[in-house]
């Protein structure tokens, strides 16, 4: 008789996983970061406390902290090794970051939320 864990795992449909980008969590006291493209990764948006602060309008009254989520999307097919290269390049440019989260599509659907 299978255990609950085995039963649960058996019901989980396996999906095709594709790397499509990286969420970088950057710490800076110099305001909203600006990025050029880094290899095959292009900055798509930056949010602060979950609110999009780039591109587009930002209320001057918006409370911002020194921790930004910067979403970089791949402009071509990428592999894990490209992420390592990206992180090296970003660090060499002087950006201090707390975490990186790979962004995957699952069967073609985004496995990550958008920003407001």
């Amino acid at each position: 008789m299978p255990t609950f864990t085995e039963t649960a795992k058996a019901t989980k449909k396996k999906r095709d996983i594709k790397l499509v980008g990286i969420d970088m969590y950057i710490i800076t006291d110099k305001g909203i970061p600006k990025f050029d493209d880094i290899g095959p990764f292009k900055c798509e948006f930056i949010s602060n406390r979950g609110t999009k602060v780039w591109p587009g309008f930002v209320s001057p009254d918006l409370l911002q902290v020194n921790w930004y989520r910067c979403r970089f999307m791949a402009t071509k097919d990428v592999q894990d090794a490209d992420v390592n290269t990206f992180l090296d390049a970003l660090t060499k440019k002087g950006w201090w970051w707390s975490a990186a989260q790979k962004l995957w599509n699952y069967d073609g659907e985004a496995g990550f939320s958008k920003a407001y």
Partner: peptide, 11 residues
């Protein structure tokens, strides 16, 4: 509610 969610693996 900061809208920061990820599927960090397929499980």
């Amino acid at each position: 509610y900061a809208a920061i969610e990820h599927m960090v693996s397929d499980e």
